[in-house]
Nucleic acid binder design. Structure first.
Length: 282
DNA sequence: CTATTTGTTTATCC
DNA sequence: AGGATAAACAAATA
């Protein structure tokens, strides 16, 4: 589930808790992988009493800000990082007697019976915790969003040239350049740009026309997915996304309808249209 | 029982 | 040295 747009949607689920203090932190299994590298004891000890003041997301990473304690000179904020991994999600429970389920690994109880819940069935997600006046390095070092002005066509060309021997599919999954792009978004982008996922990245770096097409489709898919998810989660039937896991799915492009192909490329199951994205160009 | 899954990190190989 | 690739991780589902 969680790629760029779904992560943004998950972040907003906790908005109802903005401006309210945490009363209790529930962590049933601090030893699981989700908390690797995190000081769970500090999290439990420091978060109660703190007000959730804002949140932001970049790609698949989220950052929740907790205000300094009232009092002069106090500058220390608490920062909670959340990554959803493969199947994680954020939600809110509003029943006063809510008890965490098997996969509810972090629960922040607030007043009024509200609970902010992080769930993750597969434990591939991650909770990070930081205390200080400034946001943590794992947040500030993230690559700029593909929707930001810092993501440019020339920057894309440089990256693809450096990764020239990687298949395009593998390159698009690299968070150091395309934060938030995951398996289905990468396939959607390549399908729209009419580029075979196994094409070496260097072939696009050296071709202005295909480079421009790829650049624009990265932006378009990221932007449009965000709008669709904000609206009603209904992707138009012209998205490859809706057909990729149908048994014997067909290319949704007007006038095409060819049988979709699937194979492992860049270590992940990849789906493409052999007619629209026919040959590997190098 | 086997194979699969919208992700990242680590080890190993080139 | 830097980059490409496969395995590992965990748990549910088909």
């Amino acid at each position: 589930m969680p790629e760029l747009a779904e992560v943004e949607h998950a972040r907003r689920q906790w908005n109802v808790g903005l401006g309210a203090a945490v009363r209790e932190v529930l962590i049933a299994r601090p030893e699981i992988r989700v908390f690797r590298g995190t000081d769970v004891a500090a999290l439990r000890r420091r978060l109660p009493g703190r007000v959730l003041s804002r949140s932001e997301a970049n790609g698949k990473q989220m950052l929740f800000h907790f205000e300094p304690l009232p009092g002069k000179g106090e500058k220390t904020r608490l920062w909670l990082g959340v990554h959803l991994g493969m199947r994680g999600d954020l939600r809110v429970e509003t029943t006063a007697d809510f008890q965490p389920g098997k996969h509810d690994h972090l629960v922040l109880r607030q007043d009024g019976g509200r609970a902010l819940v992080f769930e993750d069935q597969r434990h591939f997600g991650r909770i990070l915790f930081h205390e200080g006046a400034e946001p943590p390095a794992w947040w500030t070092r993230l690559a700029p969003s593909v929707l930001s002005a810092e993501f440019t066509r020339d920057g894309l060309a440089d990256f693809l040239q450096r990764r020239r021997r990687s298949p395009l599919k593998a390159a698009l999954l690299m968070q150091e350049k395309f934060p938030g792009v995951g398996n289905w978004m990468a396939d959607e982008i390549l399908w729209r740009a009419r580029l075979h996922p196994a094409t070496p990245a260097g072939a696009v770096a050296a071709d202005k026309r295909r480079l421009t097409e790829l650049f624009q489709q990265i932006r378009w898919v990221a932007q449009t997915a965000s709008e669709v998810i904000s609206d009603n989660w209904t992707y138009p039937p012209t998205w490859l996304f809706l057909h990729r896991w149908e048994p014997g799915g067909f290319c949704p492009r007007r006038g095409c309808g060819a049988a979709l192909e699937r194979a492992t490329i860049g270590g992940r199951t990849t789906c493409w249209c052999p007619r629209c994205q026919g040959k590997v160009e190098s």
